[in-house]
Structures are given as C-alpha cells and as structure tokens.
Design a protein around this nucleic acid. Structure first.
Lengths: 206, 206
DNA sequence: AAAAAAATTAAACACTTGTTTAAATTTTGC
DNA sequence: GCAAAATTTAAACAAGTGTTTAATTTTTTT
C-alpha cells in the first residue's frame, strides 16, 4: 500500500524552492523534477498537474505568511505590546523567509483564476479578537482615530516592502547585502517607534 | 527608406501593456503581436528579440519610476516641503500607473542576467543636490539623526507597497476597489503626517 | 514465493515557445 | 513608372511546454 512518504514531501520541498525563486510562469515542471532528482511523470503522479502543485505551495506559503501574525494576536498583551511584538516577530520571520512577501504578492497579482483568498486564512485572525481590542482602545482614547484597515496597510507596507525591495535598494544605493541587512535592522526600530508614537496617544496600558 | 513611424511605437505600447500586466515570463511574443494586431516576425524585425524588447520597456518604466522623484528634488523648496510634495506627487503618479512598482520589483527580482541598474538613472537624482540638502538639515538639527538610506526605505515602503498590495488587501478585508482607493487616500495623508512628524524636529518641542 | 499494489521510469503526445527564412507587399528615390 | 529599399506577412524551424501512456521496478499482501 504505502511506501516511503518522503518522496511526496521531497517534491513539495523542491516545488516550493523553485516556485518561490522563479515564480509559476518562470519555471517548468522539468525544473522541479530536476531539483527533486527525478522525472516529470512523478510530479503528476502525486499532484495531478503543475497548477494543482502550485496551489498547494501557495496555500502553504499563505499560511506561513499569516502564522506570525496570529501567534502575536492570540497572546494576552496590550495593544501597544502586540504592535511592537508583531513588528519584531515579522521581521525575524521574514529574515528567514525573505522571498515570501514577493511570492505572495506576485502570485496574487497574476493569478489567472481570480479565486478569492480562502476564508480559513482570515477566520483565525478575526478569532484572536484583535479587531475588538483595537476598537476598544480607540473608544478609550488610547489610540488615535484611524481605521483598522489603515493600520494594517501601514504595518504591511513597512514590514513587507523592505524584503521585496532588497535588489532595488542595493542597486539604488550601491550597497552590499550585509549593509542592506544593517539598514533593515535600523528600519525595524524606526518603524516601531514611528508607528507606536503615531498610533498611541498615551502610555497608559489597557 | 523610412515609413510610418507609428508601427514601432505601436509595438512598444503593446509590449508595455502586456509585459506590465503579465510579466516577462507570463506572456509570449504572440500575445504581444496579437495586441498589436500583427504577427510575430515584425517584433523581431524592429527589436531583434523578446529580451531586447523587454529591456527597452523596462528601462522606460524605470525612467518613469524615477521621474516624479527627480522633478520634486530639483525644485527650490525646503526639505520638509520636498518630502510632502514627493509623497503627493508619487501617489498621484502611481494612481495613473499602479502596475509600475510591481513591474519594477518583479523584474529585478527574477532578472536572469544580473545586470546592475544603469548609473544614468541615479546620477540625475544625485545631481539635484537632495543628499547634500538632507545632510545640511541634519547638521542644523532640523532633521532627526537618521541615514538617507533609511529615509528612502521609509518613503518607498509607504508609497510603493500600497499599490502592489491592492489585491491582497482587498481580499484580506473583503473590500471593493473603490473602498481600497479611499483607504489609499487616507494612507497618503497618514504617511505625510507620520513621516514629517518623525523626521523634522520642531523648535517648541526641543 | 507468488500475486497484487504502488512507485518510478522512459518515451511519446500534442501544443506552445522564440526565432528565422523567404516570399509578398508597400513605400521611397529617381 | 521603375527599380531599390523598407515593411509586412505566412510558414517553417528546432527546442521546450505540460501531460499521458505504457512498461518496469519496488514494495506490500497473501
């Protein structure tokens, strides 16, 4: 019946690596097969088609993408602490998966099928109660009058973009990868101060 | 000798449209030929290859990308005014060319040839004297102690990312395109206040 | 150990890819 | 008006695409 499970996993790992770096259109199934050290038929044996394999990888990436967010929001911290932790956690997460923001946005940008984002990605976030906590803090006057959507946009811009723009920024300033990583660390601290100063009217805890 | 010039321009326009929306890997030369209403051989007659045509489009896009920046920096304004104007101008520019940030970053991300950014893109910026103006303001105590590179990263993050993340954000919050555009406008004002407040040290506060 | 099931392979499928060729058409210079 | 040049076209090219087929090897079950 069942044999070594690792073949299927090996294909997924190879597909993830190749899709992430080259994108769906930028690679062939033979690229992935070569990465596995096997042949193309095996890919379709386990995963029906290139597209199905991609969707699987994409959903996994999307899940990773949101995992850090959910972890922070689920904790028992004040809103300000959560914002600070979120920025810290996301930065360290993306330092280990720097291609993720680009992969997600690029995939959504040119998705042939306009399939909406599965709601099971959003529910866990709503379930953390972060939105209610935010509205409460706003009503209490702890937080500036700003929509949660604009807060999200602010956070995502400052946390995701730097990892997407590494090549552009390095070339723009003529700096090395190491120098860019230094800038990234400074950026993290700047963003933390910048956003908390802007959002939170006083230091009083919730 | 020479005939109607517009054929070459029509091909460039079609190529720009197709490359922008689908990316280099995501389209075929026949897609572009169909957009022109002609056949594939004509593309290579004018532009040798798909790659050469793409490079042309990319350089043009890159030039557009920096044009607003240069225009603002060349003016005779204070640093604070320049920052505010830059944000305004970039937002209205990208409202008309919303695919540009994604196209630039995606193209740089998976450029097979690791050709560096041509220096003739950067010289015009340096030539505006904006860097010197910034260092002077820092020495005068008008501006916080922060590197120009971090200021750039801050500005680009908050100005470019929103346009790249439209699909993600719309799906994330379940909002319409019009609602997103509203958020975008609010974001612009938020970013202006956020960044100027952070960067520029007021006399009273000191 | 034999039979059945699962996993893996090489080869072929039909189709698309970027590019080139050579012929046809249009424009230009005289 | 005519030849030369420039433009446009259809067709072909070899190589690459995702997928399928059928045969082979390996594993599991009996």
């Amino acid at each position: 019946m069942k044999r070594d499970l690792s073949t299927e996993e090996k294909i997924k790992a190879a597909a993830k690596k190749v899709f992430m770096t080259k994108g769906f259109d930028g690679c062939s199934v033979r690229d992935i097969a070569k990465e596995v050290g096997s042949n193309v038929a095996l890919l379709n044996y386990y995963f029906r088609s290139k597209e199905k394999l991609f969707e699987l990888i994409f959903e996994g990436a999307m899940s990773d993408f949101l995992q850090a967010m959910i972890a922070v929001f689920s904790s028992e911290l004040t809103l300000k602490e959560k914002v600070e932790q979120l920025i810290d956690k996301e930065f360290s997460f993306f330092l280990e998966h720097p291609e993720l923001p680009m992969f997600i946005l690029q995939s959504l940008h040119q998705n042939k099928n306009d399939a909406p984002m599965p709601s099971h990605f959003l529910k866990p976030i709503a379930k953390t109660g972060i939105f209610e906590q935010f509205e409460r803090a706003k009503a209490n006057g702890e937080v500036r009058d700003i929509s949660i959507r604009n807060v999200t946009l602010l956070l995502m811009s400052n946390v995701h973009y730097p990892f997407m723009s590494k090549k552009l920024t390095m070339q723009f300033h003529g700096i090395s990868s190491a120098e860019f990583d230094d800038d990234l660390n400074k950026h993290k601290e700047i963003v933390k101060e910048l956003i908390t100063n802007y959002l939170f009217i006083s230091n009083t805890k919730e």
